[in-house]
Amino acid sequence: MMNIVGDSEHFKQPFDHDDDYVSRADIKREIAIYQELGKKLVSLSKSQLKKLELDELLHDNILKAKTIRINSEAHRRQLHYVGKLMRSVDIDELQENLKNVLNQNRNESSKQNVAEKQKDHLLTGGDEAIQTLLEQHPGLERQKLRQLVRQANKELAKQPETASKSAAELVKYLRAETGE
């Protein structure tokens, strides 16, 4: 059995007296969170970044990171710098804004899918489908719908493998007028 002789103060650790002490491991975990969030921001499109309303320095450095070749040392350093700049940002607010921006994109794509399905239904259903749609959305113009459907069917009959301009115009019209 070994007896330790000495002053008990000698064996104290820095965190024994300080309630505000943060360990190096905690600091590294926090830095890793900023790094991951920085990577997510770099992967966003420019329009999505604008919606986040980041401060100018952070925004510019994220755009700069997008131009640097991925998997290079310069890209890694730029990501670390973006992570460092993010320490001055309210991370909870930024994560909430990021969720909203990403969710808006999902909503946009689902609206596009609804309009595409309506277009397909109109192209196959003819006047009956147009009448049904007009009952659901009375603000639509019957003449314009019939004209777009007729043109799209003609274009698809001539060249079924290519995308129809009129069909795309029909989808655009449906999205604009129905709000879907």
Rank of each mutant, 00 (worst) to 15 (best):
E128C: 01
E155I: 00
K165Q: 02
I33R: 06
L63P: 12
Q78A: 10
I91G: 06
D55Q: 08
E161H: 00
E96H: 07
I70Q: 13
D18Q: 02
P160L: 15
D18F: 05
L58R: 04
I4T: 09
L49R: 14
S166P: 00
L85E: 04
K165N: 09
K46Y: 10
D92M: 14
M1V: 11
K117L: 08
K50S: 08
T178E: 08
A163P: 07
K46S: 15
E73R: 12
Q95V: 02
Q95C: 07
Q143L: 11
R175C: 03
V42F: 00
K28Q: 11
D120E: 12
A74N: 06
H80E: 15
D16Y: 01
E9Q: 15
D16P: 01
R87I: 12
Q112W: 10
E135M: 11
H10F: 09
A115H: 01
G6L: 10
R87V: 05
Q78D: 01
G83M: 07
N103L: 03
I4S: 04
L49K: 09
I33K: 05
Y173H: 08
V22D: 08
E135D: 14
G125F: 01
R69L: 11
R175V: 09
A167G: 06
M1H: 09
A65T: 09
D26P: 00
M2C: 07
Q104C: 09
L145R: 09
E116N: 11
I91H: 07
N71T: 12
H137G: 05
L94K: 09
K64R: 11
S164Q: 00
E53I: 02
I4V: 13
K165G: 12
Y81T: 03
N107C: 09
N105Y: 07
I27E: 13
A163E: 15
T132N: 04
S110L: 01
L123M: 06
H10R: 13
I70W: 01
A152P: 00
K28C: 07
L170E: 12
L170Y: 07
T124P: 00
L134F: 04
L37P: 01
E116Q: 11
K165A: 12
K39P: 05
R69S: 13
G126S: 06
N97V: 04
D127Q: 12
P14L: 04
A157N: 05
N105L: 13
N105G: 14
E93T: 09
R76L: 14
K51I: 03
L44C: 11
G83K: 08
H10G: 10
D7E: 10
M1G: 15
D19E: 14
L49S: 05
R24I: 14
D60V: 02
M86P: 02
Q35P: 02
D127M: 05
R29H: 06
Q13Y: 05
L122Q: 07
K119R: 15
V89H: 13
L44Q: 11
L98A: 05
Q95Y: 00
G126H: 12
K111S: 10
Y21Q: 06
K154Y: 04
H59R: 15
Q78M: 08
A65S: 13
K172V: 03
K46M: 08
L102Y: 01
R69V: 03
K154G: 00
Q136W: 07
K144A: 07
V171S: 12
D16C: 01
K144H: 06
D7Y: 09
L133Q: 04
R76T: 12
L123E: 02
E128K: 07
